[in-house]
Computed example of a mutant assay.
Amino acid sequence: MTELLTEREIEDARLTDWTVSEKSLTRTVELTSFPAAIAVVNHVADAAEEADHHPDIDIRWRTLTFTLSTHSAGGLTQKDVDLARRIDALIASR
């Protein structure tokens, strides 16, 4: 089983664009268009499949909200931090 991160470990991850709650990470981003948003979703889907760790994704026109949590562990793990960083990189490349 994957271990939960401590509050300090979550802080040390420095995920500045993410909102941290006790059990999840959330980031909302607005893209330039609906097709651009869907392109990001497709890239995130590929990264999530590769990592075998899947975010909740809310799509509202060109606004995307990603929520990460390791449900099997009951909160935040390194898997969430790693995927958050990957999502950040994919968004930055757009």
Results as ranks from 00 to 15, higher is better:
Asp17Asn: 15
Thr26Asn: 08
Arg86Gln: 11
His43Ile: 10
Ile59His: 12
Arg60Pro: 06
Ser24Pro: 10
Trp61Ser: 13
Thr26Tyr: 05
Ser69Met: 07
Arg27Val: 03
Gly75Pro: 00
Ile87Ser: 01
Asp58Phe: 10
Val29Leu: 07
Thr26Lys: 13
Leu5Met: 06
Ser72Ala: 14
Asp88Cys: 09
Ser72Gln: 14
Glu3Ile: 07
Leu5Tyr: 03
Asp56Met: 05
Val20Ser: 05
Gly75Lys: 04
Val81Glu: 00
Leu83Arg: 01
His53Gly: 09
Glu7His: 05
Ala73Asp: 04
Leu4Pro: 01
His71Lys: 06
Pro35Gln: 04
Ala51Ser: 12
Thr26Arg: 13
Arg60Val: 15
Thr26Gln: 14
Leu76Tyr: 06
Asn42Met: 08
Phe34Gly: 10
Ser72Val: 12
Asp88Thr: 09
Asp17Met: 08
Leu15Asp: 04
Asn42Arg: 13
His43Arg: 15
Glu22Gly: 05
Ala51Pro: 05
Pro55Ile: 03
Arg85Met: 08
Ala92Ile: 10
Glu3Gly: 00
Leu5Lys: 00
Gly75Asp: 06
Leu83Val: 00
Asp46Leu: 15
Ser24Leu: 07
Thr67Arg: 14
Ile59Leu: 11
Ser72Cys: 10
Ile10Glu: 05
Trp61Met: 11
Arg94His: 15
Trp61Cys: 11
Pro55His: 04
Thr28Glu: 14
Ser33Asp: 13
Phe66Gly: 02
Val81Tyr: 00
Met1Phe: 08
Ala37Cys: 09
Ala48Tyr: 05
Ala48Trp: 10
Ser21Val: 05
Arg62Met: 14
Thr65Ser: 11
Leu25Gly: 03
His54Gln: 07
Asp80Ala: 03
Val20Gly: 02
Glu50Phe: 03
His71Asn: 07
Glu22Ser: 09
Leu68Lys: 01
Pro35Ile: 07
Leu68His: 00
Arg14Gln: 12
Thr16Phe: 15
Val81His: 03
Met1Gly: 15
Arg14Ile: 09
Val81Lys: 04
Leu76Pro: 01
Glu22Trp: 02
Leu31Pro: 03
Arg60Tyr: 11
Leu31Trp: 11
Ala89Ile: 12
Asn42Lys: 11
Asp80His: 03
Glu3Val: 10
Ala39Lys: 11
Arg85Thr: 06
Ile57Asn: 02
Trp61Thr: 11
Met1Val: 10
Ser93Asp: 12
His71Ile: 14
Met1Ile: 11
Ala89Met: 10
Leu64Val: 02
Val81Leu: 00
Val40Asp: 04
Leu68Trp: 01
Thr26Asp: 08
Asp56Tyr: 03
Asp46Phe: 06
Ile57Val: 13
Glu7Gly: 07
Ala48Asp: 09
Thr6Asp: 04
Thr28Gln: 10
Ala36Ser: 12
Val20Ile: 14
Pro35Lys: 03
Val40Gln: 02
Asp52Arg: 10
Thr2Met: 10
Ile87Ala: 01
Ser33Pro: 07
